[in-house]
C-alpha cells in the first residue's frame, strides 16, 4: 500500500513544489542568519572546540527524530517504516543506487562519507553553506553549486552505473 499523508495524492503532486519552495525560503533565511553548516560544525569543533555550529547539526538530528515521532503518532500511514531499524534492520533508507546488498551500502557510505567530509572541509563548507554563500555573492561558492548541478547529471547518466558495476565486479553488491 502506498504511503498516505495529510494531502491526497492529487493534491500532493501539485503541492510539492509550493511547499518545498516555502520551506526552502525559510531555510535560506535561517541559514543566512545563522551561518548554519554541518561540515563547519565538525571543523570548528576539531580546530577550536567551538560547539555553536556542531550543536546546530546535532539539533537537526534530534529535531528530525522528534518531528518524525510526533507526526508518526498522529498519522502513522505517512511514516510506514518508522522507526526504520525496527522493521528494515540494516538496509538503508532508499536514495543511494537501488538493489545492492547491505555490505555494499556500508562500503559506499564509508568511502563517500570520507570524500564528502574531506571535500567539504577543504572548500569551506557543506552544500547548504555553499548555496547560502552563493546568495551572499561568493563567486567561488557559485562555481561549487554549478559543479554540483553538473555532478547530478554526470552521476545519473554514467557514474552511478559504473559504481554499481564495480561493486558487482568486486563481489560485494
Amino acid at each position: 500500500m502506498a504511503a498516505a499523508g495529510w494531502l491526497s495524492k492529487d493534491a500532493a503532486i501539485i503541492a510539492v513544489p509550493i511547499v518545498t519552495l516555502l520551506f526552502g525560503l525559510l531555510i535560506g533565511w535561517l541559514g543566512q542568519r545563522s551561518g548554519f553548516c554541518s561540515v563547519g560544525g565538525f571543523r570548528d569543533f576539531f580546530l577550536f572546540r567551538h560547539t555553536r555550529l556542531l550543536y546546530g547539526y546535532l539539533a537537526l538530528i534530534g529535531g528530525a527524530f522528534i518531528g518524525y515521532l510526533v507526526f508518526w503518532l498522529i498519522t502513522p500511514s505517512a511514516f510506514e517504516n518508522f522507526f526504520w531499524l525496527m522493521g528494515k534492520g540494516l538496509m538503508p533508507v532508499p536514495g543511494a543506487p537501488a538493489n545492492l546488498t547491505v555490505v555494499a551500502y556500508i562500503v559506499l557510505a564509508v568511502i563517500s562519507g570520507i570524500a564528502v567530509g574531506f571535500i567539504g572541509v577543504l572548500l569551506g563548507g557543506c552544500p547548504l553553506r555553499q548555496v547560502v554563500m552563493t546568495s551572499e555573492g561568493n563567486i567561488k561558492s557559485l562555481c561549487f553549486v554549478i559543479g554540483m548541478c553538473i555532478g547530478g547529471v554526470v552521476f545519473a547518466a554514467w557514474v552511478s552505473g559504473w559504481g554499481v558495476t564495480l561493486l558487482k565486479g568486486l563481489g560485494i553488491a
Partner: peptide, 22 residues
Amino acid sequence: PLYVGLAIGILAALVQVLLISA
C-alpha cells in the same frame, strides 16, 4: 544554529507528513 537545526529537522518531518502521498 541550535534553533535553526531544530526547526529544519521538525519541518522536514512536516514536509513528509504533508507530501508523502506524492
